[in-house]
Amino acid sequence: MSLDAVLDVIAAACLLIGALLSLAAGVALVRFPDLLTRMHAAAKPQVLGLLLVLLGCALRLRTGVDITTLVLVGVFQLATAPVAAHMVGRAGYPHEYIRTDLLLTDELAAHLDKVAAGDQQDPAHA
């Protein structure tokens, strides 16, 4: 088997696994119980799935110009996916989208209570 054929097979495997992981992320979005667990699905299998698809594309295309663009897509995905998950999670946090009955502990609630108490005290000090 020539090198080209080997690379093509690896590229095909990467594309398939990446697509399956993205599919799993989609299923997780539907099946998970609340907003925060769903954001896990949007952050992890989806990012790895995309990275694998990019790797597959890079192995198939094999041209410098394309590969640099794919590298940039991967880097920005790694840098921005956690931020997106953070923003959505934070926006949804104190609302009813979160199943508190499934939480073992919630240390953010205590912190927010403290911050809110501080907010009320501040005008008194000023």
Partner: peptide, 8 residues
């Protein structure tokens, strides 16, 4: 469904 937690 799986349990979760929010920790500081």
């Amino acid at each position: 469904p799986p349990f979760s937690a929010i920790i500081a």
